[in-house]
Design a protein around this nucleic acid. Sequence first.
DNA 1: TCCTGCTGTAAAAGAGTTGTGAACGACGCT
DNA 2: AGCGTCGTTCACAACTCTTTTACAGCAGGA
Lengths: 117, 117
Amino acid sequence: MEAANSHLNGPGGEVLTAGPLEVRLDQRTVLADGRGLVLTVREFHLLAVLASRPERVVSREEIYDLVWGGKMPVHDRSVDVYVSKLRHKLEASIPHWSYIQTHIGFGYCFSPRSLAA
Amino acid sequence: MEAANSHLNGPGGEVLTAGPLEVRLDQRTVLADGRGLVLTVREFHLLAVLASRPERVVSREEIYDLVWGGKMPVHDRSVDVYVSKLRHKLEASIPHWSYIQTHIGFGYCFSPRSLAA
DNA sequence: TCCTGCTGTAAAAGAGTTGTGAACGACGCT
DNA sequence: AGCGTCGTTCACAACTCTTTTACAGCAGGA
């Protein structure tokens, strides 16, 4: 069972679905429980990178390369800061769901799960 | 009959399997009975080193060199401590299986076996 | 049996990592 | 210019991981 579904939605229009979250790559929009979620460019890009690799642990370095481009400077915290921002927006729109897991010393993993009892 | 299977799983994706244990080197994840097992960086590295040498007795010195890097300091107990931690996590996730055998005076050996009657 | 050396492991100590609010500059808009 | 937004950086608290230490239990040998 995969945690997120990805399917083509017409020519070039890909949509990632994970619980109440829907990421429309082509339209650069995100739906949370059907309502639109406003993300900045960086936030959206980060979410797209993570959500398209469900259940995969992605290193900070790889995330940085994919979103910011190039080699991550030592001691750079950009990835962490944006993961934090993203988590807050997701949690604000979709309570009782967790999306991004931290893998200490390595990176993050997009692993959607309901926190409902 | 080999104790652990190792096979390529697509380009660059290697997976070690030993009973209900699955070590996904590329994804840096471990599945125990299908469920994800959370390991720290050191624990994962140690497991990867041992599991990729099934039925081979590996000396402490070699383990240290492969996981910690460099020459093992005299009287260092790091390897023992981490083998202990790893055993506990494995046993907690996969009861009735034994994975790491001690070879007194020498080192350890990854030798998965079911303890079921 | 009494040493001695080795292993298992809990716990303390030390080192490193992550979450996050706040400050700051750049940019665009009115 | 004044304002709001965005991205980056910094600082600090809180937390997790790693290493070290200490001790108990074993096994083997004299």
